[in-house]
Design a protein around this nucleic acid. Structure first.
Lengths: 368, 368
DNA sequence: AGCCCCTATTCAAACGTTTGAACTTGAAAT
DNA sequence: ATTTCAAGTTCAAACGTTTGAATAGGGGCT
């Protein structure tokens, strides 16, 4: 009756997409019937079995594939999420993403991804973008939240509690106790620390936990001159893959130059640990004989470094999976959001930590 | 006239979204006029300046944001792309993605991402998914293409020419010459090689180039017992971040056990190079004194390893950017696709390569 | 006074679905 | 012979845009 773009035998060009209408024509039923059947709607039960079969056959024969945009426009569901990561090419992000990806794929959701580079403005504009694109929910990694979020959201660390937002975060107290306990048991007493960059709640919590753990130990010091803060994540317009390592390296040198004796370093992440370790080696120190280093995250490389890196394992993949699952459970089953899930870290002892040297430090040289 | 969901003063709940219709009502014009003005259509020039301003003001006042789904449904443009990567948490992928991301963001495109895990079935299903989701084009990284692609596509390496698909690929001949030339000049004569996994064209090209480069050199051998193939990318259902390193490690041990003397290794990527290096160290070898190792990619860690890794740099970020730019140029300006862009690698000499030991090899022990 | 045409604006169809309400048909109940 | 009802199916509105075609209002021309 109305216009119809039948391929007219010779389908030159892009092969017009099969619509519900085409299936309906072939099956000799109405569009509604086709929609009902193809969606397995309860109402379709009422249809004659023969009719249903006819529709199914027609759809198969034509290779019908529903139009996502039309369906979403009408139905309000897009089966897509927005994922906000700090930096696409970071080990931390990669680990979490691999968990998120597998979970979303299994559930038939797609996602849009944007890096926020720890910049609040970017975070906010991305949230608006996602909203405009019709995502159903947000997965936010390592970001301080700007306030209430206009969509269901689950985060992976990075911020203090926001009502209605579920957070998957690491148990930093345990992490700190594990690392410091390990070092103390090896005889270390003066610890250098690479803190996460200020403003990052994860970093604050971690630092608080480290100080707490130090106090619980006898005769264990965190000399102020030996705690340095990363700034990496604070800017990072054009990302440089080497940035984090380089910063660790520079901090490593600065620590040695500080002239304060120390026998061990606890870094905020593996990346900076690797950089600092490199600096120590370059200055002629041996690890773990002269200095011990503990990283954080347990990235894939760590067991293959020289020396193998002792580190605190964050089950990044699990954290990503957990976050995704929680969000999906909310979207699909209305499970409420807002809890705080604590994830337990694990100490992985390898070769970069060893007994403290007998002398208070390998570095009692005042200058250089 | 028709139904209208005006917030009725007390807007409880989710704040209904502002539609064109709402703006039209406030500006006292028709919906069409609003659409025209807000899109800066040429036809809008014909409107009275006063009207245009009224519309603009109304839109601003209400905070109008267009409905993406409706617009795309009608207009056929979604400003979104599909990105297919081998493995989300791989250094190679991360490098390329960082280039793609920055380019797409600048152009106002979003993208969906799926890992194909080098599985043809996954690749095909993902392409269908993307098609269904209405993406305008595809960016495919490191995958053998299943045949013609139903959408405009640009790839980053991984396959032999397909008509209509632009490829950004590395110049493997140059890469091989750089690596082998460097090693030969250091006196190395017998080279072990970790090849990429079979079926990957990138791997084949590289291997062909390596053999070619070896022939160009005097007295330079690639003993068959010392070329091993990666299998990593061939399966990889549940991804394990350590997988690639571990495989390199195992290959490293196998090479030593082969009993064939060699003084240098050229690995398919940095990951496997790092693993193999670790194996060599574990077996009591020193690098570069006893054995030299050349990696491939130049991931961020490489300058911080111990020893620092000599490697062939692939400008991954640039490759990603180039690919994205080419695809966008096609979509926005109809620039034709189908070329093959060759990217030049660079040799980065660090500490993992050194003069060949005097003895033909450190490994003239027949057993073990 | 009638006609034409220009300017400024609106109509209404279309994009491809989903879904509440309505419509047939035939058989059972009155 | 009419009404009642259920089973099976279709109508048509709606989702929020974009855009080709149509329209109203005026002013200038003959």
């Amino acid at each position: 009756m109305s216009q119809d773009n039948t391929p007219s035998t010779k389908d030159r060009g892009k092969a017009p997409r099969v619509r519900l209408k085409d299936v309906a024509a072939l099956a000799e039923v109405s569009v509604s019937t086709v929609s009902l059947v193809l969606n397995g709607a309860p109402r379709a039960e009422a249809l004659a079995a023969e009719t249903r079969q006819r529709v199914l056959d027609a759809a198969r024969e034509l290779g019908y594939r529903p139009n996502y945009l039309a369906r979403s426009l009408r139905g309000k569901r897009t089966h897509s999420l927005g994922v906000l990561v700090p930096e696409i090419s970071e080990g931390y992000t990669a680990g979490v993403m691999s968990g998120i990806e597998s979970e979303l794929e299994a559930a038939g959701y797609t996602y849009l991804m944007v890096s926020h580079h720890s910049r609040p403005a970017k975070l906010e504009s991305s949230i608006r973008l996602f909203e405009d694109r019709g995502v159903e929910g947000l997965l936010i990694i390592g970001a301080e939240l700007p306030g209430p979020i206009p969509l269901p959201a689950v985060t992976v660390s990075g911020h203090r509690p926001v009502p209605g937002v579920t957070t998957v975060a690491l148990d930093h107290r345990t992490a700190a106790r594990l690392a410091l306990g390990h070092l103390a048991s090896l005889g270390h007493r003066r610890l250098a620390v690479i803190r996460g960059f200020g403003g990052n709640v994860d970093a604050e919590d971690r630092w608080r936990a480290i100080r707490g753990a130090a106090q619980e130990l006898d005769d264990f010091e965190l000399p102020p001159a030996l705690t340095v803060e990363l700034r990496s994540r604070a800017y990072g317009e054009s990302f440089d893959a080497e940035g984090g390592y380089r910063e660790g390296y520079e901090i490593g040198r600065r620590l040695l130059d500080a002239g304060e004796p120390f026998s061990a370093l606890f870094a905020f992440n593996d990346i900076s640990a690797i950089g600092a370790l490199r600096a120590f080696l370059d200055c002629g120190l041996r690890a773990p004989e002269d200095i011990s280093v503990v990283g954080f995250d347990d990235l894939g490389v760590t067991p293959f470094l020289n020396p193998r890196l002792t580190t605190i394992r964050q089950p990044l993949r699990d954290m990503g999976q957990a976050a995704a699952r929680l969000l999906l459970a909310h979207l699909d089953d209305q499970k409420p959001l807002g809890e705080r899930i604590l994830i337990q870290p694990k100490l992985v002892v390898r070769d970069s930590t060893g007994p403290a040297p007998d002398s208070p430090s390998p570095l009692d040289r005042p200058g250089a």
